[in-house]
Design a protein around this nucleic acid. Structure first.
Length: 709
DNA sequence: AACTCTTTAGTCGCG
DNA sequence: CTAAAGAGTT
């Protein structure tokens, strides 16, 4: 039987799939069949009777990855995957907390705050404490809270050596208190809460440890400190963790990912040998060589090189554009050419480091009348009208949800102004009760408020006994949202989305076999929905490099390959920042199957001003024989190369270029400025300096009276 | 309560 | 430049 399952696996994959000596770490390169290994292993474990479906715990980071695993698994095995613990960290923690909400100290119908909700909750805390939000920015506090929770730290465990941090910790504590009062948890809280639940409750912990004989973890390099500890807590000494990841694709340190977990895992589990999947099934050899070459400039790697049997393929194409406009024009023309040769638009992707860069490319595509799709932006459950409708539903499920209350108490407007809300807020704080309770108490006198209270109560009663979809439909219809959007100029889309919400509820009820409103609300928070825009059409794919991780395309354009943009200037001041940028470059390169374009622009508009960038150091890190320069307005970028730290030193001319681009310099007449670029060579070399007020100035390098500052 | 003006910030973003 | 958020105006 298992023959079918294992057929077609290469020796490395086979070794990983059938590993039977305890915990394992699989170093899975890009395009090496990682998902296949994970799912085949689960199927193999079940089919060979080593574990029952209930005994498997498989964790991913995205809903998409979890879905894919489930789909592939049900194709491999005739089992019902429902009830199996396969999902995202957050989804599984949610499941755990719902099942044991009492032990976790949560109300049964606790609600989940998404990032937006969390930010407004944070703002409310700061307002209640009368904090100067200039000094303590809500966003900063939000990320402070999340960073600490991701490291497993509550407010009282934070070591604050300065008054500022001490204050932040205080506000953190107050925020948590507010969440507890309101019966809501944020994303990080889902994890921390379930970690604490398991660590405090030995009975529960042992129950799950006994149950999950095999734990499998996808994208191990993206795990946070807390997630790693959570996994260790769930694993009995006799059970195995199978971790799959790629340290070279670790690009999420900024949101708490801790690559070091891979090394810790090796030590903690006594793993002697890492299984490496290095055969790549995606790209041609030239592309892989380029990726290998770039990433080899990083230190602290576990180490691996990708290879293929597919052959060399085409050279990488490098285009040097005079400006961002020209870069976009080039990309458009190339895609048109590819399309004429039969390539689908959807097989081409344009990647960039930051979202702002998409504008120019979008404009060029639009002018050329070509279809395109931009990834990112608002997702379905994040749209304002959907959040409004959900707020009504949340308030029915949990009256104490102050976030939801504030969102809709006066939307659509019903004469409950800021003054009234303030009064409710004061009463609620004085009485230590929720806004809802305070509103009920004083609502009688005020027309609008009384109407709101009655509406919510009526909805609660009316929806009892209804199916989930009926409840959603009913609440949307009675909330007045549709009437409100009818009178708005471009409200049609919003009304359409609201009716789509009913469809989403129907679909959810069908998939999960749950008619429970709380389940649906959790689903809405945990799965914000796809990025809607014209999915499924044949369109050029535009996205950031981060968003491209895990995807592949026949042809890939990596644009904006300039110093200070990619690698991003902000990363240069961060610890290991440059290495993370290089991994980002590695991810970008390995998205391409057949053809890879690298482009950079000498001049680019940034923040409304022209910026002059040198070619990215990553271009220099590519072996010249893999790259073919096409077009190009300048013969060589050798001059540029020599200003770069990572380039081999060229003493004679390095002395001639005393400042890096981006370096701050002082000029006796114009004051402080930033070096924006160089032009010419030798005695004619000129330096361009940007001054804040005055703008850009060219100086003959030899005579310019510049001093570093 | 809608509208307008001003100010400000601007890397990447799963759940 | 430009989008978003906050403040101020009608």
């Amino acid at each position: 039987m298992s023959h079918d399952l294992l057929a077609g696996l290469n020796p490395e994959q086979l070794r990983a799939v059938t590993w039977d000596k305890g915990s394992a770490l699989v170093l899975a390169g890009a395009g090496s069949g990682k998902t296949r290994v994970l799912t085949t292993r689960i199927a193999w474990l079940i089919q060979t009777g080593q574990v029952s479906p209930m005994g498997v715990l498989a964790v991913t980071f995205t809903n998409k990855a979890a879905r894919e695993m489930l789909t592939r698994l049900s194709a491999m095995l005739p089992i019902n995957t429902r009830g199996m613990w396969i999902g995202t960290f957050h989804g599984l923690c949610n499941r755990l907390l719902r099942a044991h909400h009492r032990d976790a100290g949560l109300p049964q119908l606790f609600q989940i705050l998404d990032a937006q909700d969390q930010l407004s909750a944070v703002k409310r805390v700061l307002k209640a404490l009368n904090v100067d939000t200039e000094k303590y920015e809500p966003r900063k506090l939000q990320s402070f809270i999340n960073m600490n929770k991701e490291a497993g730290l509550r407010a009282d465990k934070i070591e604050a050596y300065d008054p500022y941090t001490r204050r932040l910790a205080e506000y953190f504590a107050e925020y948590d208190a507010q969440c507890n009062r309101e019966g809501v948890v944020d994303f990080a809280e889902l994890l921390l809460r379930s970690y604490e639940l398991l660590s405090r409750n030995a009975m529960l912990r042992e129950h799950y440890q006994e149950r999950f004989r095999h734990i499998l973890v996808d994208e191990f390099q993206d795990t946070s400190r807390l997630q790693y500890d959570w996994l260790k807590l769930l694993r009995a000494p006799s059970n195995a963790i199978f971790g799959v990841g790629d340290d070279d694709q670790s690009i999420y340190a900024f949101r708490g990912a801790n690559v070091a977990n891979m090394a810790h895992f090796q030590q903690d589990m006594g793993i002697e040998e890492v299984i490496k999947l290095t055969q790549n099934y995606r790209s041609f050899g030239t592309i892989l060589d380029a990726a290998n070459a770039v990433i080899s400039h990083n230190s602290n790697r576990l180490g691996k090189d990708l290879w293929t049997t597919a052959g060399r393929g085409e050279l990488i194409r490098h285009y040097e554009a005079p400006s961002d406009l020209d870069e976009a024009r080039f990309v458009v023309e190339e895609i048109q050419g590819l399309h004429r040769e039969g390539m689908a638009y959807a097989d081409t992707a344009v990647l960039y480091r930051s979202n702002a860069q998409s504008r120019v490319i979008e404009h060029a595509l639009f002018s050329a009348g070509m279809p395109y799709r931009v990834y990112g932006g608002l997702r379905f459950f994040e749209r304002a009208e959907i959040k409004h409708a959900l707020a009504y539903l949340r308030l029915i499920a949990n009256h104490d949800d102050d976030n939801a209350f504030l969102r809709v108490v006066n939307f659509p407007t019903r004469g409950v102004g800021a003054r009234t809300v303030e009064a409710i807020d004061a009463a609620a704080r004085a009485g230590g009760v929720s806004l809802w309770a305070a509103a009920c108490a004083q609502g009688a006198g005020k027309k609008g408020l009384a109407g709101f209270v009655q509406l919510i109560e009526a909805l609660r009663i009316e929806t009892q006994g209804m199916s989930l979809a009926e409840q959603v439909e009913h609440v949307v219809a009675r909330s007045g949202l549709i009437e409100h959007y009818k009178s708005e100029r471009d409200g049609e889309d919003r009304i359409e989305n609201l009716s789509e919400l009913t469809n989403a509820a129907t679909a959810f009820a069908g998939e999960s076999e749950s008619q429970d409103l709380a389940d649906f609300l959790a689903h809405a928070a945990l799965e914000a929905g796809e990025h809607e825009a014209q999915a499924g059409q044949d369109a050029v794919q535009l996205m950031t490099v981060h968003a491209a991780k895990g995807l592949e395309f026949m042809a890939v354009f990596i644009t904006g390959l300039e110093e200070a943009l990619f690698p991003h200037e902000n990363s240069l001041t961060e610890v290991d920042g440059l290495e993370e940028e290089r991994r980002l470059m590695y991810v970008a390169i390995t998205r391409a199957r057949q053809r890879l374009y690298l482009t950079h622009a000498a001049q680019r508009m940034l923040h409304g001003q022209p910026r002059y960038g040198l070619p990215s150091r990553f271009l220099q890190e590519l072996p010249a024989e893999l790259v073919q320069t096409i077009g190009g307005w300048r013969k060589t970028s050798a001059l540029a190369a020599e200003t770069m730290e990572s380039a081999p030193p060229a003493p004679s001319r390095a002395a001639a270029l005393p400042y890096r681009v981006g370096a701050r310099v002082q000029h006796p007449r114009y004051g402080e400025g930033v070096v924006a670029g160089y032009q010419g060579q030798g005695a004619e070399a000129e330096v361009r300096v940007s001054f804040p007020k005055i703008g850009d100035k060219w100086f003959i390098l030899e005579y310019a009276r510049l001093t570093p500052c």
